[in-house]
């Protein structure tokens, strides 16, 4: 799990162009959106692409995706349970 969390942080930084940010700057449990990393709606859509591309997980409904993107830990747990890649 810890390994997946680290990989995931690296992938998030890369696909969302979070310039100057390192994996250790992202708290495992901090909210990704709004007050947390300050991500926006396009970032959410790009995370949906990341989930499918890297882990074979399709999130059709952007609203349901919001629950998955609560924090890096929640994302990692969801990936563990649903991944096909």
């Amino acid at each position: 799990m810890e390994e997946l969390i680290q990989t995931l942080k690296q992938q998030i930084i890369e696909v969302l162009n979070l310039e100057g940010m390192k994996p250790e700057d992202i708290d495992n449990d901090a909210p990704l959106f709004n007050e947390g990393l300050g991500l926006d709606s396009i970032d959410a859509l790009e995370l949906i692409v990341l989930m499918e591309k890297k882990y074979g997980i399709k999130l059709q409904d952007p609203k349901a995706a919001k629950d998955v993107f609560q924090s890096v830990r929640v994302m990692a747990e969801y990936i563990e349970q649903h991944r096909s890649k």
């Binding site: 859509l45 790009e46 692409v49």
Partner: peptide, 9 residues
Amino acid sequence: YFPSPALFV
């Protein structure tokens, strides 16, 4: 085939 929303915008 992974259309990128961040590029599309």
